[in-house]
């Protein structure tokens, strides 16, 4: 039953992933022919996707919107290089990665006070997010059974190998592998439940 729920979530994500892929590729194919409505829809949807992508990487920096707009501009200038027969995401994120690196470089090379402000903003944002992630992890660990907690703490936090963790806990390697696998599955399920509740 537990495994069934996990598999359902994975299959759901994969379907959504594939749907988005086809949807964006279709919109870009229409945009190649000059369909402005499709292009508007594509850029609007990609704007949100890219914003989330950049937010995860750079936190709530005050230049995030500028970076995003640079990415949209890069997509516009490079739209001719997309082949509608190819997957959309690798093309999109290759452009986004490249443009965001260029943006950061240009900010750094402009130097002075602005770059200090930028780094401070980024540091503050990443501190907030890191802190939130740590709190989340502590909360999840506190809810686990002692065996699960020990297995995950040893292998995922302390960086022990399965063999080392098994020796530490006084169980076989196979038993440790099973314990880690089950602990991760329970954690995933817990996180999925929380997402649904939100």
């Amino acid at each position: 039953m537990k495994i069934d729920i996990d598999i359902d979530i994975d299959i759901g994500n994969q379907k959504k992933w594939a749907q988005d892929e086809r949807h964006w590729a279709g919109l870009m194919a229409l945009a190649h022919r000059g369909d402005k409505g499709a292009y508007n829809q594509l850029l609007t949807e990609l704007g949100d996707v890219i914003y989330k992508y950049l937010l995860v990487r750079f936190g709530r920096a005050n230049w995030l919107e500028d970076m995003l707009q640079e990415c949209l501009l890069a997509i516009h200038k490079g739209r001719h290089s997309y082949d509608p027969k190819r997957p959309f995401r690798p093309w999109l994120f290759a452009l986004v990665r490249n443009r965001s690196i260029d943006f950061l470089r240009s900010q750094r090379s402009s130097g002075g006070r602005q770059s200090i402000d930028l780094s401070t903003a980024a540091a503050e944002a990443s501190y907030e997010e890191n802190h939130a992630v740590k709190l989340d992890a502590v909360r999840l660990l506190a809810r686990m059974s002692p065996d699960d907690r020990e297995a995950l703490t040893l292998t995922k936090y302390a960086g022990f190998s399965i063999a080392e963790a098994a020796a530490w806990s006084g169980i076989s390697k196979t038993a440790m592998k099973v314990r880690v696998f089950r602990a991760l599955a329970r954690t995933r399920k817990q996180l999925a439940r929380e997402k649904i509740a939100l």
């Binding site: 190649h32 022919r33 402005k36 292009y39 919107e65 995003l68 001719h80 290089s81 997309y82 082949d83």
Partner: peptide, 25 residues
């Protein structure tokens, strides 16, 4: 979406012209 982004998207859409895809590498 911010007003700036909306404005940018509108201007990019306004200057959209048909293009040819690159073909297979």
């Amino acid at each position: 979406m911010t007003r700036d982004r909306d404005h940018l998207i509108n201007s990019l859409v306004a200057e959209l012209t048909p293009v040819q895809s690159p073909g297979q590498s």
